[in-house]
Simulated scan of single mutants.
Amino acid sequence: MSFDTPALMQEARRQLEICNACRYCEGFCSVFPAMTRNKAFADGDISHLANLCHNCRGCSYSCQYIPPHEFALNIPAALAEVRQDSWERHVWPAPLARAFHERGLVIMLVMVAAITAFFLALHGRAPGEGEGFYAFVAHNTLVAIFAPAFLLPLVGVAIGLVRYWRETGGRRIALADLAGAFGSAARMRNLSGGHGEGCNFEKGDRYSDARRHAHQAMMYGFLLCFAATSAGTLMHYLLDWPAPYPIWSPPKVFGISGGVLMILGGVWLALLKLRADPDLGARRVWGGEMAFVVLLVLIAASGMALYAATGTGAVPALLAFHLGTVLAFFVLLPWSKMVHGFFRLSALIIEEQKKRR
């Protein structure tokens, strides 16, 4: 366990018990109706509520017991700390998660720079022999590097999810659980405060859907880019159609549209985060969260720049940098903010199960 886990759990338990007695915020988001099922909160219950929380902050701006009241409630920060701790405890190996979240910007920049230098050196010593980007780095070389860098981190995520599932009381998954959870995730309903008027993330006591829309742009942009990579893989191996691909092909259509959405969503999220109150979140990991957003923007922006520079002398440097950002993303996946998507979806599935008990 993390050295401060008992203290985090105890403080979150104290605040949740006060909230459960008050119930003024009962209709705000999924956390509060879920909270009312319990009279006492085990550690697993608190971890579940923490990952169900989307940090919309509406409860804090509506609460009569925030400081300077003697109860000193700060539910968004308390649950953010427990949520962060749950990722750090469960994902394997745990020490790497804490290191990235607390020093993420430095770790990310150093890793991207090192990988970029590696690919530049690789191109200088053993250039590829194919067409397009494969003229700079051979296809088999890319597969040999990226396949383990993508698959092995997923093992760390899977271990973390199994541990989290056990701690929070997850059961055998039914189709209804998946339908409800994926429907909520697709709409990002909880980022609208649960009441459809928006959340209070960056505007204090005013509602706004800006954060939900920015998250949607980032999420759907990322999924489109993943679809572009998947389409290119299928075309290469099943249709014997290697890159480069024309502008009308699925890899290009999905990749360009996804890249634009990722850049817009990432810049928007970063601006909102700069305007939000850091005391209503896990302050110690602010840098790691911002580093993750910056990395996603760099991936998309370098990919778009690389496409625009096709046929010019800038391709080797841009390709090395783009590969550096993508490989850094894969390697850091279990310990970066990316892991929140896996845990949040698990929390939504478990919540669907708990509703039916």
Rank of each mutant, 00 (worst) to 15 (best):
D4M: 03
T5E: 09
P6W: 03
Q10P: 05
E11T: 14
A12G: 05
R14W: 12
E17Y: 03
C19S: 05
N20M: 06
R23A: 13
E26K: 15
C29Y: 04
S30N: 04
A34L: 13
M35V: 04
R37K: 14
G44C: 01
S47A: 15
H48G: 10
N51T: 04
L52D: 07
C56V: 04
S60H: 15
Y61T: 03
S62H: 11
Y65N: 13
P67D: 09
L73D: 04
N74L: 13
P76Q: 04
A80R: 09
D85H: 08
S86F: 09
S86C: 05
W87N: 05
V91F: 15
W92I: 11
P93G: 08
P95K: 06
L96C: 07
F100H: 09
H101Q: 12
E102T: 15
R103C: 11
G104D: 01
M111V: 00
M111R: 11
V112K: 06
V112Q: 01
A114Q: 04
A114N: 11
A117F: 04
F118C: 01
L120M: 15
A121P: 00
H123S: 10
P127F: 07
P127L: 06
G132P: 07
Y134V: 00
T141V: 15
V143M: 14
A147N: 05
L154E: 02
V157G: 02
V157R: 00
V162W: 01
R163G: 12
E167Q: 14
G169V: 04
I173T: 11
A174D: 08
A179G: 01
A185K: 03
R187D: 02
G193D: 09
G194Q: 07
G198A: 11
C199P: 00
F201H: 12
K203M: 10
D205Q: 08
S208G: 05
R212G: 00
A214S: 06
A214Q: 03
A217L: 14
A217K: 11
A217D: 10
A217G: 01
M218S: 15
M219I: 01
Y220W: 13
G221Q: 07
T229H: 09
T229M: 13
A231R: 01
G232F: 07
T233R: 02
M235Q: 15
H236V: 00
Y237T: 08
L239R: 10
L239Y: 09
L239G: 08
W248F: 12
W248M: 10
K252G: 02
G255W: 04
G255Y: 09
V260E: 03
L261A: 14
L261V: 02
M262A: 08
L264G: 06
G265E: 14
G266Y: 01
W268Y: 14
A270S: 10
L272I: 03
A276G: 02
R283F: 12
R284G: 04
G287V: 07
E289H: 14
A291L: 10
A291W: 03
L296I: 06
L298T: 00
S302G: 12
Y307H: 13
A308L: 14
A308P: 00
G311C: 03
A314C: 01
A320K: 10
L323I: 02
L323S: 04
F330D: 03
L332Y: 08
L332S: 05
L333E: 01
L333Y: 09
P334E: 04
S336R: 02
M338P: 00
V339R: 12
F342A: 15
L345E: 06
L348E: 12
E351L: 07
K355R: 14
K355A: 15
R356H: 05
